[in-house]
């Protein structure tokens, strides 16, 4: 599904985040970990199509990112909050959905229950904790079944227990062929494959 070839980022004529080749199939969970300032966020933004200043090529389903310019197949969850804080949890989850099918509605409620948002579905987002807010964004991403869900700094929003819950939520999309790519400072549990950023290179473990 995702193919990254000869990828590199550069800063002040110095290259970093060198990737020889990464191949990620459908329905897999990938964790890329490494220290701060190694280019993790820029890699995810590059895959998402928000950052263009990189070398090499990124292909999703054998097509370059420019092909998905008007119809994005990835959803990026980054450090900034993408929620309408004065609206309810439900309203925030359904923002991008053109129509809500009965199945989607049932699934949203199920996922909200898993993330302990079941009884807060009518509450305004501003009253919730930051991890609950991130769960809303995650449920919103998962319910759309994109090709790739990109989560930057997963451990920033969730503790170990909540990471397990987050992965459980992601299972719904993973079973439908969505891939999950997360970045973190340390190696996280329960992922299918791991990549370490080491000496400006990305190495598969």
């Amino acid at each position: 599904m995702l193919k990254i070839e000869g990828f590199s980022l550069s800063r002040e004529n110095k290259k970093f985040m060198l990737i020889n080749e990464i191949l990620i199939g459908s329905g897999v969970r990938v964790n890329i970990f490494g220290n701060n300032d190694t280019g993790r966020s820029l890699l995810l933004r590059s895959i998402h199509g928000d950052h263009h200043d990189y070398g090499g090529q990124i292909l999703i389903k054998d097509k370059p990112l420019v092909f998905y310019k008007k119809k994005k197949k990835t959803i990026l969850l980054d450090n900034t909050s993408h929620l309408l804080i004065n609206e309810t949890v439900w309203k925030n989850i359904i923002i991008p959905l053109p129509k809500i099918t009965a199945r989607q509605k049932q699934k949203i409620l199920e996922l909200c229950t898993i993330s302990k948002l079941g009884d807060k579905i009518g509450n305004k987002v501003k009253t919730l904790s930051s991890s609950s807010k991130k769960f809303i964004e995650l449920i919103r991403a998962v319910i759309q079944l994109p090709q790739i869900i990109l989560i930057d700094d997963l451990e920033n929003y969730f503790d170990d227990k909540n990471i397990t819950v987050a992965l459980e939520i992601c299972n719904f999309a993973l079973n439908s062929g969505t891939s999950l790519i997360t970045t973190s400072k340390r190696k996280l549990d329960n992922f299918d494959s791991y990549y370490r950023i080491q000496d400006s290179k990305v190495v598969k473990l």
Partner: peptide, 15 residues
């Protein structure tokens, strides 16, 4: 603007 920014970042249809 804020709504649409969130709409697009959350995976909504670009056009």
């Amino acid at each position: 603007n804020i709504f649409w920014k969130i709409y697009h970042s959350s995976g909504g249809y670009i056009g």
